[in-house]
């Protein structure tokens, strides 16, 4: 079980969190004309990298903040965690 450092609460076990997917995806702005391809990429297409991955976790049984976590998908090493509105 991972040990994730919530930027608000400190180190907490994984079972307090919900996984939220790729943390680098940016939602297209509202009312912006975009192609089907762009939209499909946003909604469906995700990379599954081997190694460093920036992802979202939701501290669902804690402070209820979404956070960004940089994790190695092979070793599970966590390099950095930041608040949702910050960049890694």
């Amino acid at each position: 079980m991972l040990y994730i450092k919530c930027p608000y609460c400190g180190l907490r076990s994984q079972n307090e969190f919900a996984y939220g997917g790729d943390g680098t995806v940016k939602r297209p702005a509202l009312n912006k004309e975009i192609s089907d391809v762009e939209w499909n990429n946003f909604v469906y297409n995700r990379k599954s990298p081997r190694g460093k991955h920036i992802e979202l976790w939701h501290h669902i049984s804690g402070c209820r903040q979404w956070i960004k976590v940089q994790r190695d998908t092979v070793t599970h090493e966590i390099f950095k965690t930041v608040e949702a509105d910050k960049d890694i």
């Binding site: 919900a18 939220g20 939602r27 979202l56 939701h58 669902i60 209820r64 903040q65 979404w66 949702a84 509105d85």
Partner: peptide
């Protein structure tokens, strides 16, 4: 609730 928090915290802070 998670859905609303996601948009408020990440998409439209």
């Amino acid at each position: 609730l998670s859905h609303l928090e996601y948009y408020l915290q990440l998409v439209w802070p």
